[in-house]
Amino acid sequence: MDVRVGAYAVIVRDGRLLLTHWNEHGRSGWTLPGGGLEEYETTEQAAVREVREETGYDAELRTLLGVDSLFLEPADRIVPGDGPLHALRVVYLARIVGGSLTHEADGSSDEARWVPLDAVGELPTLSLVPTAIDMLLRRLPADRTDGAGDATGPADEVAPD
């Protein structure tokens, strides 16, 4: 069984979630900016690098939202390989600190876009998006999730574990 570790960023600004359109190996869908670790790279470094590569933005990580463990059979893999895949997806809450929105050239993503939170469910997303939104909502204080479900306030308002 192959194991792949990826690092991703949840970035919400003005009621919109930053997403990238993954388009590779004949499959596509909207997902969070992020991806697999390179040699001798930490998950934090990978998340920041991937945000920059896929969106043009410089990001600052605020807190770890969680780690998702996903098992895929060979036919369901979206990354090359022959056998089953154990995907460990490390998800951070982040904020933009510089750069400007651009689309990745010659990579696995072909578009980056700010999507209103209430419209995310209308897009064809990869499974990571609802998983990460759930991680974020579980971190918000109770008074921030009473029907609003919006994570637009300062990142410091996210409750620690």
Rank of each mutant, 00 (worst) to 15 (best):
E104G: 07
S100K: 13
D14W: 07
R144M: 15
V12Q: 03
V129R: 11
R113H: 08
L17F: 02
R16A: 15
V91N: 06
T145Q: 09
Y8F: 05
L117N: 02
Q45S: 09
V115W: 02
T131D: 12
L65A: 01
E53C: 00
G29F: 03
V79F: 15
Y40R: 14
A87N: 04
G36T: 01
A46D: 01
G121W: 08
V48P: 00
P124I: 09
V90E: 03
L65M: 06
E39R: 12
P116W: 11
L32V: 01
V3I: 14
S69F: 13
G26I: 14
E60W: 09
R138Y: 06
E54Q: 15
E38Y: 07
G34C: 07
I11M: 10
I11Q: 02
E122V: 07
R77M: 05
V115S: 01
D2K: 14
A9V: 05
T20D: 13
L17S: 00
Y92I: 03
P124F: 08
D76Q: 15
V5L: 08
H86I: 04
G83L: 10
A132M: 08
M135Y: 12
G98A: 02
S127K: 10
V67M: 02
T131E: 12
V67A: 07
A87H: 10
D106T: 02
S127N: 11
A87M: 06
S100P: 00
E122Y: 06
A151F: 08
I11S: 04
S100M: 09
G35Q: 08
G149I: 09
V91E: 00
